[in-house]
Nucleic acid binder design. Structure first.
Length: 115
DNA sequence: GCCCTACATCAAC
DNA sequence: GTTGATGTAGGGC
């Protein structure tokens, strides 16, 4: 009996997104574009899709992903709201400085180019 | 500086 | 085919 629960198994693509996310140390943040590039795709949208569906939340630190221009973006499907507010507070809690709802300019972006 | 529009690009529904 | 937690480029105020 294959019970058809409302759940769905994460795809390989999503798994790669979460895996890359987990290797981000505390106090570091990355962008959708960088993540997408690290995964081999040039579309940040695909990454956003995976994070939005984030079946491993909050195990996966999806709050460490921000826009390339420093925008916090969204959180759990909310582009703006209490979710995003918590996301920003969480970032500050990790030592990340924010400026006007955006990432501080002096905040380094985690690069998956490290070896 | 801020806001909007348009297109690109990939995955999931 | 449409949408989506984006990105880049261009235009207007």
């Amino acid at each position: 009996m294959s019970a058809v629960n409302g759940e769905r198994v994460p795809t390989v693509f999503e798994a790669r997104v979460y895996e890359a996310l987990r290797r981000i140390p505390r106090g570091q943040v990355t962008t959708y574009g960088r993540l997408a590039a690290a995964l081999g795709c040039g579309s940040a949208r695909a990454v956003g899709q995976a994070l939005r569906r984030n079946p491993f939340a909050p195990e996966v630190p999806c709050h460490r992903v921000v826009g390339s221009d420093g925008r916090v973006g969204g959180y759990f499907g909310e582009v703006a709201g209490a979710r995003v507010t918590e996301k920003m507070e969480r970032l500050e809690s990790e030592g990340i400085r924010l400026a006007g709802g955006r990432l501080a300019e002096d905040q380094p972006i985690w690069e998956f180019h490290e070896d």
